[in-house]
Amino acid sequence: MSEKTCAACDYALDDTAIQVTIGGRVVEVCCEECAEKLREADAKARA
């Protein structure tokens, strides 16, 4: 079984993972801070 990791920082995910839609894909992150980092990076890439 493969372990899921945060899309932003590679931290191991547990039951508290947050799902974020980035570029039309749903990814999981470990915390709201990582979610915000991905949202900001996506917004810059689209600008």
Rank of each mutant, 00 (worst) to 15 (best):
residue 34 C to P: 14
residue 20 V to T: 13
residue 14 D to A: 06
residue 47 A to H: 06
residue 1 M to G: 11
residue 13 L to V: 11
residue 15 D to I: 10
residue 30 C to I: 01
residue 41 A to P: 07
residue 10 D to V: 11
residue 23 G to H: 10
residue 38 L to W: 07
residue 38 L to A: 09
residue 30 C to S: 02
residue 22 I to C: 01
residue 43 A to F: 12
residue 21 T to E: 12
residue 21 T to A: 05
residue 18 I to T: 04
residue 45 A to Q: 08
residue 31 C to K: 02
residue 28 E to G: 00
residue 36 E to H: 09
residue 32 E to M: 13
residue 6 C to R: 00
residue 37 K to Q: 15
residue 41 A to E: 13
residue 11 Y to R: 14
residue 24 G to P: 00
residue 32 E to V: 14
residue 1 M to H: 15
residue 19 Q to P: 07
residue 41 A to I: 04
residue 38 L to T: 05
residue 38 L to P: 10
residue 6 C to N: 02
residue 27 V to E: 02
residue 15 D to G: 10
residue 42 D to L: 05
residue 45 A to W: 08
residue 36 E to A: 09
residue 38 L to F: 07
residue 12 A to Q: 04
residue 7 A to G: 08
residue 28 E to I: 01
residue 24 G to S: 00
residue 2 S to H: 14
residue 43 A to G: 15
residue 2 S to E: 11
residue 22 I to T: 03
residue 20 V to W: 03
residue 43 A to C: 14
residue 15 D to H: 12
residue 25 R to S: 11
residue 47 A to Y: 10
residue 46 R to T: 03
residue 2 S to P: 14
residue 42 D to G: 03
residue 15 D to V: 06
residue 39 R to Q: 11
residue 2 S to V: 15
residue 46 R to C: 02
residue 16 T to W: 03
residue 15 D to T: 07
residue 11 Y to Q: 13
residue 12 A to I: 04
residue 27 V to W: 00
residue 31 C to N: 05
residue 38 L to I: 04
residue 46 R to Y: 02
residue 4 K to D: 07
residue 22 I to G: 01
residue 43 A to N: 14
